[in-house]
Design a protein around this nucleic acid. Structure first.
Lengths: 232, 232
DNA sequence: CGTTCAATTATGTTTGACATATTGACATTT
DNA sequence: AAATGTCAATATGTCAAACATAATTGAACG
C-alpha cells in the first residue's frame, strides 16, 4: 500500500521549526521572542510566510504579538483552543457519540477528586439545585437547566481547573439538542434497562457519604438517564 | 474595574467570519470552498490577511487547499490537533496533574464500552502481554512497556476511535518521565494506602467477567500503582 | 479512443511599501 | 522633583503587485 505523499508548504515547515524551537527552549510566558524580520532571516523565508506560521501559533495561544514590543511567549490553555473544533457541524456522528461517552466517563471518574475536595459550600449549592428541581417535577426545561447546573457544580467541586474547562466545553456541546440526540446511541443502552433510576437527590446523598465507590456506583446508575433518554 | 480593551486584528475577524460561515453552512468534507481572491473581495480584506486566517483553519484541518483546485472542506480530527499543545513544556504543573487525573478517570470509565465490545482477540492479546510481563517480574523497563501496551489494548477493545486517539495522546504525553513525576501528585494518593494492589493479571480476570462494575472496581484498585508510584 | 502536451488557473511565495500603535527618551509644566 | 505632554524610533499590521508552481482541462495527435 502506497501512502499519500504529503508535501508540506513552507508555512508548515516554518511553523514546525518555530514550534520545535519553542518546545526545546526554556522560554516562559511573558518572555520576548525573535521578531518577524529576524525569524524570516534565520529561516530564509519571506515575512508573509513567517507571519502565516506565527498566525497559527498565535491562534493556539503559544505566542502573542504586540506592536512595537514584538512577539512574546504566551500561555496556551489546552481545552480552550479545543473548543474551536467542538462545533457539532464539524464532527461525525461517531465522534459525537464518543464525545458523549467521554463526558459520561469523566463524570464517573470524578469520584476520588470529589471525595477529596468537596466543601460544605458545594454541598449547599447542590442541595439548592436539587430542591429547585423537585419543586416543579413536570417542568422539562427546568430539569434540563438544573441538570446542567448540577453536573457543572460537581466539576467545580473537584477543584481541577482544566477538567472544569473541558467539562464546560462538553456541556456546551451537548446543550445542542441535535447533538444530544445523536449522542444517545443505543450502543450502550440496553445494559441499563433493568437497573433502578438514580435521581439527582440520590446522587447528592451518595456524595455526602464521601465514599468514592458509592459515588461511582450511584453516578453510573444516574447516567443511564442520559444514555436512555430520547431527546427531541 | 476596567477590563482590558482587546482589539482584534483583521486576521482574527477574517478567521471568525470564515469559521462562522463554515459552521452555519451545510458544506461537507470534500466540497469546494471559495477561493482566496474571492474571499478577499467578499470581506474587503487583502489576500495576505485572508491567507493568514486560512492558514489557521488549515492547521486544525477545517480546510485543505490544493493548487489549481482551490480550497476544499476538510474533516478535522478533534484530538489530533490537540496534540500540538500537549507538550509538557507548554503546560503548567497543575494542568499536567489534571491531565494525568483525566487519563486515570477515562480508563476507569471504559468499563461499559469494554464489556460491550471486547472480543476474543482482544482477550488473547491482553493475555499475551500479561504473560510477557510475568516472565520477567524484575525488569522495570519491560514493565513500563507492557503497562503501556496493556492499557492501549484496552482502549482499542472499546472500539471508540476518538477515545483511542485521545488516549494515544495522553500515553505519549505521560511517557515523558518528567511528566510522570509531576503528575504523580500526592493529592489523591493517601486514600489508597490501605487497599490491595491490583495487578494486570487481576485486571484481566476482571475483564473476562464482562461485568462493568467489577471491572471498574478492579481498575480503581489497579490505578493506584500510578497514583502512588514515584517515578524517577 | 486513448495519450500527450500545453494553456489555464488558483494556490504558494517573494518583494516592497505604507499604516499604526507602543515604547522610551526628552521637553514641558505645575 | 514629579507629573504630564511631545516626538521619534520601531515592530507588527495591512496592502498591492508580481512571479513560481502544480494540477486540471481540453485540444491536438497518434
Amino acid at each position: 500500500m502506497l501512502s499519500i505523499i504529503k508535501q508540506s508548504s513552507l508555512t508548515d515547515i516554518a511553523e514546525e521549526k518555530i514550534y520545535n524551537y519553542l518546545r526545546d527552549s526554556d522560554l516562559k510566558p511573558g518572555d520576548s521572542f525573535h521578531g518577524e524580520k529576524e525569524l524570516a532571516e534565520m529561516l530564509s523565508i519571506s515575512r508573509p510566510v513567517i507571519r502565516e506560521a506565527l498566525s497559527r501559533l498565535r491562534m493556539i495561544g503559544l505566542l502573542e504579538s504586540r506592536k512595537r514590543r514584538g512577539i512574546v511567549i504566551g500561555k496556551p490553555t489546552i481545552f480552550e483552543t479545543l473548543g474551536k473544533m467542538l462545533e457539532p457541524q464539524f464532527l461525525s456522528d461517531d465522534e459525537q457519540r464518543d464525545l458523549f461517552h467521554l463526558r459520561l466517563t469523566i463524570e464517573q471518574g470524578l469520584a476520588d477528586a470529589l471525595a477529596e475536595n468537596i466543601t460544605r459550600q458545594d454541598l449547599d449549592a447542590l442541595e439548592k439545585i436539587v430542591a429547585e428541581e423537585e419543586r416543579a417535577p413536570a417542568d422539562y426545561a427546568l430539569f434540563l437547566d438544573c441538570d446542567r447546573r448540577f453536573h457543572l457544580r460537581i466539576y467545580q467541586a473537584t477543584r481541577c481547573d482544566s477538567l472544569l474547562s473541558l467539562q464546560k466545553l462538553l456541556l456546551q456541546f451537548f446543550s445542542d439538542p441535535e447533538s444530544r440526540r445523536k449522542a444517545a446511541s443505543p450502543r450502550f443502552a440496553h445494559r441499563f434497562e433493568d437497573e433502578d433510576q438514580i435521581s439527582h437527590r440520590d446522587l447528592l446523598e451518595a456524595i455526602r457519604l464521601r465514599d468514592p465507590e458509592v459515588f461511582q456506583r450511584a453516578m453510573r446508575g444516574h447516567l443511564k438517564i442520559h444514555r436512555n433518554r430520547k431527546d427531541n
